[in-house]
Amino acid sequence: MKFVLEVDMGETAFDGEAAGELGRILRYWGGNLRHYDLKPGDGSAIYDSAYSEVGRWSIVAAPGS
């Protein structure tokens, strides 16, 4: 299996606050991790601090499996 996390930071990398915003996104995601089985097909949208969708995470089957 593979864990895939993709976040679009926009043209300005979250207005110069990329480290803080990405840290918040990862803390929020990590806090909700227990709600998922973490099997292929699981995933969810990722939101920034303004509640705008900025990406997605997913669990996918590894190539060749």
Score class of each variant (00 low, 15 high):
residue 2 K to V: 08
residue 2 K to R: 13
residue 3 F to E: 03
residue 3 F to A: 07
residue 3 F to G: 09
residue 3 F to L: 15
residue 4 V to E: 09
residue 4 V to M: 09
residue 5 L to T: 02
residue 5 L to A: 07
residue 5 L to K: 04
residue 6 E to Q: 02
residue 6 E to N: 03
residue 6 E to G: 05
residue 6 E to T: 09
residue 7 V to E: 05
residue 7 V to T: 06
residue 7 V to D: 05
residue 8 D to N: 14
residue 8 D to Q: 08
residue 8 D to E: 11
residue 9 M to K: 00
residue 9 M to I: 05
residue 9 M to R: 00
residue 10 G to Q: 02
residue 11 E to L: 10
residue 11 E to F: 13
residue 11 E to D: 12
residue 12 T to Q: 06
residue 12 T to S: 13
residue 12 T to M: 07
residue 13 A to G: 01
residue 14 F to R: 01
residue 14 F to W: 01
residue 15 D to A: 14
residue 15 D to L: 08
residue 15 D to E: 15
residue 19 A to L: 12
residue 19 A to H: 00
residue 19 A to R: 04
residue 20 G to N: 07
residue 20 G to F: 07
residue 20 G to M: 06
residue 20 G to H: 04
residue 21 E to C: 02
residue 21 E to G: 01
residue 22 L to G: 02
residue 22 L to A: 02
residue 22 L to T: 00
residue 22 L to S: 01
residue 23 G to L: 02
residue 24 R to A: 13
residue 25 I to D: 05
residue 26 L to Y: 00
residue 26 L to E: 01
residue 27 R to E: 07
residue 27 R to Y: 00
residue 27 R to G: 00
residue 27 R to N: 04
residue 27 R to D: 06
residue 28 Y to G: 04
residue 28 Y to P: 00
residue 28 Y to A: 08
residue 29 W to K: 00
residue 29 W to N: 02
residue 30 G to N: 08
residue 31 G to Q: 08
residue 31 G to E: 10
residue 32 N to R: 06
residue 32 N to V: 06
residue 32 N to S: 05
residue 32 N to W: 00
residue 33 L to T: 09
residue 33 L to F: 04
residue 34 R to L: 13
residue 34 R to D: 14
residue 34 R to G: 13
residue 35 H to G: 11
residue 35 H to N: 14
residue 36 Y to M: 14
residue 36 Y to C: 12
residue 37 D to C: 13
residue 37 D to H: 14
residue 38 L to D: 06
residue 38 L to H: 13
residue 38 L to R: 06
residue 39 K to I: 15
residue 39 K to E: 08
residue 39 K to Y: 04
residue 39 K to A: 08
residue 41 G to R: 12
residue 42 D to G: 10
residue 42 D to Y: 03
residue 43 G to P: 11
residue 43 G to S: 08
residue 43 G to A: 07
residue 44 S to H: 09
residue 44 S to N: 13
residue 45 A to E: 14
residue 46 I to F: 10
residue 47 Y to A: 10
residue 47 Y to N: 12
residue 48 D to P: 14
residue 48 D to N: 15
residue 49 S to M: 10
residue 49 S to Q: 11
residue 50 A to W: 09
residue 50 A to T: 12
residue 50 A to K: 15
residue 50 A to Q: 15
residue 50 A to H: 12
residue 51 Y to W: 10
residue 52 S to E: 12
residue 52 S to F: 10
residue 53 E to D: 06
residue 53 E to Q: 15
residue 54 V to R: 01
residue 54 V to N: 02
residue 54 V to A: 07
residue 55 G to F: 10
residue 55 G to H: 08
residue 55 G to T: 10
residue 55 G to C: 12
residue 57 W to L: 07
residue 58 S to M: 11
residue 58 S to F: 02
residue 59 I to H: 07
residue 60 V to P: 11
residue 60 V to F: 08
residue 62 A to P: 12
residue 62 A to L: 14
residue 62 A to Y: 09
residue 63 P to E: 08
residue 63 P to N: 05
residue 63 P to T: 03
residue 63 P to C: 05
residue 64 G to Q: 09
